[in-house]
């Protein structure tokens, strides 16, 4: 490695008119019967909801493809506004800002060859983003070596919980009791 990296800085409080885009949470093709809703809340070290976090999701396609596809944030070349996703292409990428109550939700299809969605967390007060994973219920998750390496109470923070038909709950705790396991990719 010959180049030294550019340091990270916080996303700050004012990304909201720049980064979120219409259709950001809607990774699944429109009306797809296999759509899975994953939702939850982001909490700080005092258990207060974080109203200004930004989550990004990356995942392989339902066929296992990891190449992704353009079109997550299509623009309207006539107006310069957002055109939204085309409802057909699976880009594998989602971006969701938490609401005033710290809630977020994403609608997607389970990845083809892996039991997890990759998550990147940004927020005011967070100087360097954090990676975590949302593990979906199933046999692959039960046999996952990363999960197996964690103590049970830590492992539990990466497991999405059934929360209704085709709906899973996944909370993110930035600090303190039940603190989410965050990942490093050295």
């Amino acid at each position: 490695m010959s180049e030294l990296p550019t340091p990270a800085q916080t996303v700050g409080p004012f990304y909201g008119y720049a980064l979120p885009f219409p259709g950001g949470p809607q990774i699944a093709p429109a009306g797809h019967p296999g759509t899975l809703t994953v939702h939850g809340r982001v909490y700080d070290g005092e258990g207060a909801p974080v109203p200004d976090a930004l989550l990004e999701i990356w995942q392989p396609g339902p066929d296992g493809s990891r190449s992704g596809a353009p079109g997550s944030m299509r623009r309207d070349p006539a107006t310069g506004g957002h055109a939204g996703r085309d409802g057909v292409v699976f880009t594998g990428f989602g971006r969701i800002a938490t609401d005033a109550d710290g809630n977020w939700a994403v609608r997607t299809l389970p990845p083809g060859d892996l039991p997890y969605l990759s998550v990147c967390v940004f927020a005011r007060g967070l100087l360097h983003h954090l990676f975590t994973r949302i593990y979906l219920p199933g046999p692959e998750t039960d046999g996952d070596p990363l999960l197996a390496s964690l103590a049970p109470e830590r492992r539990a923070t990466l497991l999405a919980a059934e929360h209704g038909p085709r709906t899973l709950r996944f909370d993110i705790r930035l600090q303190g009791p039940g603190e989410t396991v965050f990942l490093d990719f050295p």
């Binding site: 990356w58 880009t91 964690l150 600090q175």
Partner: peptide
């Protein structure tokens, strides 16, 4: 109140999905 106190968990899996990424 917005930083984890636990150390990050290192992932060395060459098959990790995070080694690929979104395209535009």
């Amino acid at each position: 109140l917005r930083h984890p106190r636990e150390p990050l968990v290192a992932v060395h899996d060459p098959e990790a999905a995070e080694l690929s990424g979104p395209v535009f």
